[in-house]
């Protein structure tokens, strides 16, 4: 391959000092921002994505509602300063629409839409920095934002990109590597191992596909562990805060006990 940069050097290290199967630093921040029901900021290395989830709420547009399930609406905005070349994309850029449609179809089988009839779930993805793996970062952040919004999901969705350099598989590519190497992005539901998204925009040898596909699915499970840990930490923290509030108000607790007795009648 004739490339200006060395993807994998003789020592088996990549351009940013990682090994082949090493993931980038993965950071999650689940604190609430503004009006959103659920919020997550996720960074994979230098790629940083902020996702806000609003809803389920009554749709503004009556003609858009479906009487027995919720509608998912995904909007993506890429900050002009997010990449190395400053560039402003319009909201109706074909690539942006395609990206939003990919995220939407990833989550349609995962969100329990039948629980929210005639309502509307908005997912707003803001890309703050991009350095490869944009789709996987967006999907991971969306999963976390949906969970913090309290929307019922069948499972987590965790996504990772994987590529192949001659015969060496690589995980979690940076922008530099994405330019030179064929790669795919997969999103898996870790409990069942079901795959909700596979995208491949570059030409990849058919013999290599299975190997890196399986690798990406396994890496998804590792990402899932990290995500779950963050969610549990956050939930535990909130529950603890809630418990303190409850102990202060004995009356409130008594009320809930009453309710339970009545339910048995």
């Amino acid at each position: 391959m004739t490339s200006r940069v060395e993807i994998l050097n003789d020592g088996g290290y990549r351009s940013d000092g990682r090994r082949q199967h090493e993931l980038r630093d993965f950071n999650i921040d689940l604190s609430v921002r503004g009006q959103a029901d659920g919020c997550a900021m996720v960074s994979h290395g230098l790629t940083q994505v902020l996702v806000s989830v609003l809803g389920p709420r009554e749709a503004k547009n009556r003609s858009q509602t479906i009487h027995n399930r919720a509608i998912i609406n995904v909007e993506l905005s890429i900050a002009p300063f997010s990449s190395s070349e400053r560039r402003k994309r319009s909201r109706n850029d074909r690539r942006i629409l395609e990206f939003a449609a990919a995220v939407k179809s990833t989550f349609e089988p995962v969100i329990q839409v039948h629980l929210y009839p005639r309502s509307h779930i908005d997912i707003f993805i803001q890309v703050l920095q991009q350095d490869g793996g944009l789709l996987s970062a967006s999907i991971n952040a969306t999963t976390l934002a949906l969970i913090t919004a309290g929307i019922s999901l069948f499972d987590y969705v965790s996504a990772v990109s994987a590529g192949v350099h001659s015969t060496h598989p690589l995980l979690d590519l940076t922008a530099l590597e994405e330019n030179d190497v064929p790669y795919l992005t997969t999103a898996v539901m870790p409990r069942t191992g079901k795959v909700t998204l596979v995208t491949l925009e570059t030409r990849l040898h058919a013999d290599r596909f299975e190997e890196i596909f399986r690798l990406a699915c396994d890496a998804g499970k590792v990402i899932h562990k990290e995500m779950r840990q963050a969610v549990m930490a956050r939930t535990g923290q909130l529950v603890r805060a809630l418990d303190i509030g409850l102990h202060d108000q004995g009356a409130l607790q008594r009320d809930t006990e009453d309710d339970q007795e009545m339910r048995i009648d």
Binding site: F154, R228, V231
Partner: peptide
């Protein structure tokens, strides 16, 4: 026992 009371999506 708090942590055993907590759960997240997809956990049996």
């Amino acid at each position: 026992s708090l942590d055993t009371r907590l759960t997240s999506p997809g956990v049996p």
